[in-house]
């Protein structure tokens, strides 16, 4: 009997490569979402302030590309959940592997997607500036914070990537729970919104734990550790599940 020896890591890496090619359709959706967000950011200023007296009126419009990041976050949530659906899990079946390798390659794909989405959505901030520069009267631009320093851009990228990773881990875990039992689709949002309402202080401190952290390495550590736990839970949950019933 010619028995093929395969280890888990090789199988996961092969599946990861397969998924990178297979899921290009999902990445195209990101580009569309970001373009839309850019249009919205350009057309609608995020803040408008107007003041004046009889002789003089001053209007300050603030533009921000943060909507691109918000849209990218929505995108990563949808793909993380999509990956856990039966339809996408079936794509793994013709490939050599186990539930673990399937999950590991999903995690790999999501992290890659986070890096991609984090980088591109930060770069859209630069793109918006360039568009503003060429389309509006440059004498009216307040140049104080107009040019983005490279270290700031880099920091923005890293933070965006880390948030994407955390959010994708949360969404993936939710998706796996929903596969275990559909009731979780209702239970999880109820729990989140319910505790926001009832345990406001606690939720705020949880929120602060991540958002309030200003020291980058510690922030990265917190995010990565939490993501790791969430992906780990997803892996354990789906490892016992039957497929293709």
């Amino acid at each position: 009997m010619s028995s093929a020896e395969v280890n888990l890591l090789t199988a996961s890496v092969k599946q990861y490569h397969y998924k990178l090619k297979a899921y290009t359709g999902l990445v195209n959706r990101l580009i569309i979402a970001q373009m839309l967000a850019l249009v919205f950011s350009y057309v609608g200023a995020t803040g408008m302030m107007s003041s004046g007296n009889d002789e003089l009126t001053v209007t300050v419009s603030t533009y921000s590309a943060s909507m691109v990041i918000v849209f990218s976050i929505f995108w990563i949530i949808t793909i993380a959940i999509t990956l856990t659906t039966k339809q996408y899990k079936k794509i793994e079946l013709p490939l050599v592997g186990t539930r673990i390798s399937g999950n590991l390659s999903d995690v790999g794909f999501l992290l890659t997607a986070s890096v991609y989405a984090g980088m591109t959505s930060s770069l859209f901030g630069v793109l918006l500036r360039i568009i503003m520069y060429f389309t509006s009267d440059s004498s009216k631009i307040v140049f104080d914070e107009f040019s983005l320093a490279f270290p700031d851009l880099l920091l923005g990228m890293v933070v965006a990537i880390l948030y994407m990773a955390l959010i994708s881990a949360m969404a993936y875990c939710t998706g796996v729970l929903a596969q275990v039992n559909m009731a979780f689709v209702i239970i999880i949002p109820v729990l989140i919104f319910g505790s926001l309402k009832v345990y406001t202080n606690f939720m705020q401190s949880v929120f602060k734990f991540y958002v309030g952290e200003t020291f980058l390495p510690l922030f990265a550590l917190k995010i990565l550790f939490t993501s790791l736990i969430l992906f780990g839970i997803s892996l354990l949950l789906s490892n016992r599940m039957e497929v293709n019933r």
């Binding site: 093929a4 395969v6 199988a11 050599v96 186990t98 673990i100 390798s101």
Partner: peptide, 8 residues
Amino acid sequence: NSLAVSAN
């Protein structure tokens, strides 16, 4: 859920 069976 066996890798050996899946590979073969």
